[in-house]
Design a protein around this nucleic acid. Structure first.
Length: 446
RNA sequence: GUGGCUGUAGCUCAGUUGGUUAGAGCACCAGAUUGUGGUUCUGGGGGUCGCGGGUUCGAAUCCCGUCAGCCACCCCA
């Protein structure tokens, strides 16, 4: 016997979990489309040179790579942004700009696993390319906002910053040459005490006073106007840094005008993001109830990503929803339904002699738009009801010999165990309508 | 990739200083009840004690390795 097992970081998805996942995907799809983003897809496997050197040294190490049967060096995509850059460079001609797309697909990273962190997981990206308009930046934040609201996640915070601010501050402090190391240290605020971060920066060659100023800036909290004012002071006359400050100011102003509630979007000067390709605004999204889960939706502006594949200037901005991480979080919060069925109606296989009637009834209910499972075997009624309840059906439809004789049907609410008798006298339309309205009532009652 | 903790039935866990046929609750199946599920009663199936090796008369228990999970580093969705 071969032991049934899965690779580390690769998982099976049982119905309850897969259904929850599909619900998230449905919501994401709806929100993306509501802003005009169009779906695309790309291959899971790419030529290795398309993927390497685009994210960071780290993502190169995490890349699943191998030689295919034709001796080609290939790799599995580790995110959806890099393949999109290739896609955009290859197809701009027919797409035209600006171009907005969403892409929901599986990606692979050969890194160590942890809670909410797997080797195979799904991302739901949306990006706008071909424009540097601040509107595109605003929409990126608005989509993330609408998405989390639509998912019913009450408490979350979108933290925004701009790479240019960080660069400007570093230049003003004379630390531009140490940017990567210092930003990495800065990212540890919240994990390490401020003194610890300063010490680490000094280790990277920064003067203590400069490091302390950097850390105090990143630790700023409060209203966005306040934080931006303090940041602006640190940026000084650096022109690029000022652009960043203005970009964030405009961003916050725009989303506020669009109706985003106070506190949902905050300016956080410590958000740096690891991926090297970001050039403008950056954002991360945290569940207030599970801050240690990490960001469930991150992104930013990258103004020269496609430059690796084409001479044409293709600026872009977008974000990525990590639905597997989000799902892990929702599960932990007990917010994932235990239902194992997507259908609402369980049709009891009562009397094998009436098989034809059952099939006809099931077909009529489905034609009306309801999901119906007709149990394949005429097992004992108790057993069928037990299974139906366990799987999470809303109602069981019981029609046995007695009911057929009387022209009635019994509709049982599986949650409350209450049964209602429906009189239909062989009029299929009447039966369907009655069940339909009962279901509506049950749904709205929840 | 590095370090720490953990690994007994599908799930949650017992298992005395290593001692003979490894237990419980829940879940599952069958019956009490050939037309009504989440209560009750009775019975039943199911465990290479993660895997491999070592120490020992004897290992679930001690040692080493390995795999997996969690946590931290790193990075990130």
């Amino acid at each position: 016997m071969i032991e049934p097992r899965t690779l580390k970081g690769f998982r099976d998805h049982l119905p309850a979990q897969a259904l929850a996942r599909e619900r998230l995907l449905d919501v994401a799809r709806r929100v993306y489309r509501s802003y005009g983003f169009a779906p695309i897809d790309t291959p899971a496997l790419e030529y290795l040179d398309v993927l390497t050197g685009k994210g960071s040294a780290e993502t190169d190490k995490q890349l699943y790579r191998f030689e295919d049967h034709g001796g080609r060096q290939v790799g599995l995509r580790f995110d959806l942004t890099v393949p999109f850059a290739r896609f955009a460079a290859q197809h701009v001609g027919v797409l035209g700009t600006p171009f907005k797309r969403y892409h929901m697909a599986t990606v692979w990273r050969g890194e160590n696993t942890q809670r909410g962190r797997y080797r195979e997981f799904m991302q739901c990206d949306f990006d706008t390319i071909g424009t540097t308009s601040a509107v595109a930046d605003m929409e990126t934040v608005l989509v993330v906002h609408d998405l989390l609201v639509a998912l019913g996640i009450g408490r979350f915070t979108i933290r925004v910053n701009d790479r240019r601010i960080l660069g400007g501050v570093l230049r003003t402090l004379g630390l531009a040459d140490r940017a990567t190391d210092l930003l990495r240290s800065l990212d540890k605020l919240g994990k390490l005490p401020p003194e610890g971060v300063v010490a680490e920066m000094v280790g990277h060659g920064a003067p203590e006073e400069a490091a302390a100023r950097l850390v105090s800036m990143a630790g700023l909290s409060g209203g966005s106007a306040e934080v931006l004012g303090a940041v602006a002071a640190l940026v000084g006359d650096d022109p690029v840094g000022r652009e960043g400050v203005e970009a964030v100011r405009a961003l916050v102003d725009g989303v506020t005008r669009a109706g985003v509630a106070d506190g949902r979007v905050v300016v956080d000067p410590s958000i740096a993001r690891g991926l090297d390709y970001y050039t403008g605004i950056v954002l991360e999204t945290f569940l207030d109830e599970l801050p240690t889960l990490g960001s469930v939706c991150s992104g930013g502006r990258y103004d020269d990503l496609a430059g690796l594949y084409t001479k044409q200037k293709l600026p872009g901005v977008g974000a990525s929803l990590g639905i597997d991480r989000l799902l892990a979080g929702l599960e932990e919060l007990g917010r994932v339904s235990a239902a194992e069925t997507a259908a609402e109606v369980f049709l009891v296989h009562f009397d094998a002699a009436h098989l034809g009637d059952y099939l006809r009834i099931a077909a009529a209910l489905r034609a009306d738009g309801m999901g119906v499972e007709f149990f394949p075997e005429p097992r004992k009624l108790g057993q069928q009801l037990k299974l139906a309840g366990k799987r999470g059906f809303r109602v069981a439809l019981v029609i046995g010999g007695d009911e057929f004789a009387r022209g009635t049907a019994q509709l049982k609410n599986l949650a409350t165990e209450q049964a209602t008798t429906i009189a239909w006298n062989g009029d299929l339309r009447a039966l369907v309508d009655a069940i339909h309205s009962h279901l509506e009532a049950i749904r709205s009652g929840h």
